[in-house]
Design a protein around this nucleic acid. Structure first.
Length: 113
DNA sequence: TTTCTAACA
DNA sequence: TGTTAGCA
């Protein structure tokens, strides 16, 4: 199927400015820009060159937070997110069990821990 | 006023 | 990563 799922399209719609990404993920602008440089996320840009994030971008950012909390290095996280074939290691699978549910179904509980 | 890039402590 | 300078 060439056309993405309706929901997937909406989740890929970029509308959040840096300030929103920072509040929603708890990350600093510096960190977010750094992760983009590692191709972990690919936010769109406004005509003025300002980044605009989609829900999927934020979701990835949240996942990065999870991995960091579990002690993964940015190098390792980069491999995990950019090269799926490296994810099937006992090491990763073990931690994936603790991954929180993705940003969907209107579940906002993740924002209130 | 907010965000951006680049670069240095 | 933090922070700051100088732009847009």
């Amino acid at each position: 199927m060439i056309i993405l799922d309706k929901d997937q399209m909406r989740r890929n719609t970029a509308i959040f400015p840096m300030s929103s990404a920072m509040k929603l993920t708890g990350l600093t602008a510096r960190q977010i820009r750094y992760y983009e440089s590692l191709s972990l996320i690919s936010p769109e840009r406004t005509p003025g060159n300002h980044r605009i994030f989609s829900m999927n971008d934020l979701d990835i950012l949240l996942s990065i937070q999870n991995y960091m909390e579990k002690g993964f290095t940015m190098k390792r996280i980069g491999e995990i997110l950019n090269e799926p074939h490296k994810v099937d290691t006992p090491e990763i699978l073990k931690y994936n069990e603790y991954q929180r549910p993705l940003l969907n179904r209107g579940d906002l509980s993740r924002f209130f821990q």
